[in-house]
């Protein structure tokens, strides 16, 4: 069953056309990759999916809610159903790691502080951070830890959908493989649907179930990685050779 469907998306900034009719479907429970050369609008598409940017024309449907002309109430409920991990973590710099993770719980639920603390501890362990790190501030931790903490925050509300923007970029190879393993583990444990933008070939082969490749403003290929050679796009030929 498709959980996200993108239909005929056009995007234009001033005079620069980014997307010219994109169509894709993302099914429940899969890890879906959006790939393409730099500047092709992968991140833009991701930002359009999470309501950070408007598309010029077309429609995106997420969890049966259409994003064009979405009402405030629907948008708010969607935002609680997804978690987003930004490229550099985007932790709130004025809050410690545990406060960052606790924030959505404090704002959206009426849980007791003790309960929230328990949940935060669980999420910190889940993503592989040490509980002694939880009092540190974002400026005091490494890039890899920031990503893990950002992931823990994205998972705080137990979302159905997880969006990852280049999750392994800027990580050393060992941390990157760990992160891939973590994503796979989380998908199996929590039944998440994961949408990610990535450049990392290892990570692409290790984690992704299906991919969409954007090239020259259109979808050059959509499907499983094993059939990718059937595509005629130049980018695909060079990237996967």
């Amino acid at each position: 069953m498709s959980i996200i469907s993108v239909r005929d998306i056009h995007t234009q900034f001033d005079e620069k056309i980014v997307h010219k009719g994109l169509n894709l479907d993302i099914n429940e429970g899969e890890i879906y990759g959006i790939l393409g050369p730099s500047g092709c609008g992968k991140t833009t598409l991701l930002r359009e999916m999470v309501l950070l940017q408007e598309f010029t024309h077309g429609n995106i449907t997420i969890l049966d809610k259409s994003l064009s002309n979405i009402s405030q109430v629907n948008a708010q409920s969607l935002r609680r159903d997804w978690g987003v991990l930004f490229q550099a973590g985007a932790l709130f710099s004025s809050l410690s790691i545990e406060e960052n993770i606790a924030l959505p719980l404090v704002e959206y639920t009426d849980l007791s502080l003790a309960m929230i603390n328990e949940i935060v501890k669980f999420k910190i362990n889940l993503v592989g951070l040490k509980s002694t790190d939880s009092k540190l501030y974002p400026s005091q931790i490494s890039g890899g830890m920031k990503k893990k903490a950002g992931l823990a925050r994205a998972l705080a509300m137990d979302p159905k959908l997880l969006f990852l923007d280049e999750p392994t970029s800027g990580l050393d190879p060992i941390s990157a493989r760990e992160f891939d393993a973590l994503i796979l583990k989380l998908r199996d444990m929590l039944g998440l649907t994961v949408v990610m933008v990535s450049h990392d070939l290892r990570s692409i082969y290790d984690t992704l179930d299906r991919v969409a490749i954007i090239d020259e403003m259109k979808i050059a290929y959509e499907g499983t990685l094993s059939d990718v050679a059937t595509s005629s796009s130049d980018f695909v030929k060079i990237f996967f050779k």
Partner: peptide
Amino acid sequence: TQELDAMKTMGF
């Protein structure tokens, strides 16, 4: 640092 984007996607 994309903190504003993060806030928006979390519905704050």
